[in-house]
Amino acid sequence: MSKVQPLVARDPEVESRESGLTINRAFKVFQSAEGKEVRAINDVSLAIRQGEFFILLGPSGCGKTTLLRSIAGLESLDAGEIYLGDQRIDQLPPYDRPVNTVFQSYALFPHLTVAQNVAFGLEMEKKPKTEIAKTVQEMLDLVHLGEFGGRKPNQLSGGQQQRVALARSLAKRPKVLLLDESLSALDFKLRRQMQVELKRIQRETGITFVFVTHDQEEALSMGDHIAVFSKGRPEQVGTPEEIYNEPANRFVADFIGDINFVDAVKSAEGEITVEGVPFRVKQDISALPIGAEVSAAIRPERITLTAPRETALTGTVETLMFMGADVRCEVRLTDGTTLLVRLSPPYDTAVLHEAATVSVEVEAEHMRVVER
């Protein structure tokens, strides 16, 4: 049998620039400590629409922060172009670019009050004092810190300091706000609260947000579009729903949430076979030859377990855990593959017990074919 080639995501088509942020054929190369060439940004082209919340997602070292720093002007590209609307900005110094950055460390001035921190950039631009005062109050009200202007940063919680950093970056009314792992220092509960706040602020201001994170749940919950990065380039760009439900390849499927991979073979057009059991798929697999060895990627919550049927894929329930909102179990197939299954109530209690033999059911639209 022939082995399928990786189903690589197509490069995104760069839309007309209009007023959005466009990255065109960007490259950035570093030398490693061993003297090897590392392509931190490897032929990246992206089109980010004006006024959207865009996520750069990927593991450490994948190039997402280098790309963000290149947009800010903190790194220079070796090749390629960056446009904001019709204006090319990659050749401009950082202070001339209509972008601002919120860093993970907040970088607040400890000797200045909250209001003075927010006013700092405007004072450097020698704006009128009345305009500065008005803008500072507007920004503090926007981040729900209107009464905290007289406090020092060390008198604030971590979440409040994050909001001050955000207010300071927004005060200059940038066309693009860049956020580099800006919530990673917060505890779990506060991080969730700030995710909601960031979405609210982005909607209210209409400013384009470009947000770097390695947290998949954070990306899915916040982004209008997500670019999943690996080895210096995006593997897939799409909406959260597209990234989660229609991963372009095995890397994206494996990186985003829990997933099962099952060995399969293309047995007919629109059909794959797992352990001799045929499954229809809605995905277009016409480019693959009959007999191609592939993997079926299946989300745990898309699997249904029923009483065993002769013609169905069968397995044995090995572990069972009640999690409150759902039941999670592991099912071992006859070839030794273990499936993680997540079942929401109501479910068949007669089937769900350890050592039970069950049939594994998956609907066509929930089975994604990727490279093995």
Results as ranks from 00 to 15, higher is better:
P6S: 11
S16E: 14
S19Q: 12
S19K: 13
L21F: 01
V29Q: 13
E34P: 01
G35C: 01
V38M: 07
R39E: 06
R39D: 03
G58V: 09
S60M: 09
C62V: 07
C62I: 08
T65R: 07
T65Y: 09
I71K: 02
G80F: 10
L84S: 10
D90W: 11
P93H: 06
R97F: 09
L108N: 08
F109W: 14
K126V: 04
K129Y: 00
K129E: 01
M139P: 10
V143P: 13
H144E: 15
G146S: 12
E147G: 07
R151V: 05
Q161K: 12
Q161C: 10
Q162H: 03
R163C: 04
L166K: 03
S169Y: 08
L170Y: 02
L177Q: 03
E197I: 11
D215N: 12
A219K: 00
V228T: 06
V237N: 09
G257N: 12
D258L: 15
V262L: 14
D263M: 01
G270E: 01
I272V: 12
T273I: 04
V274D: 00
E275F: 05
G276A: 06
S286V: 06
E310F: 05
L333W: 14
P346C: 06
L352I: 09
E354V: 15
A355T: 15
R372D: 11
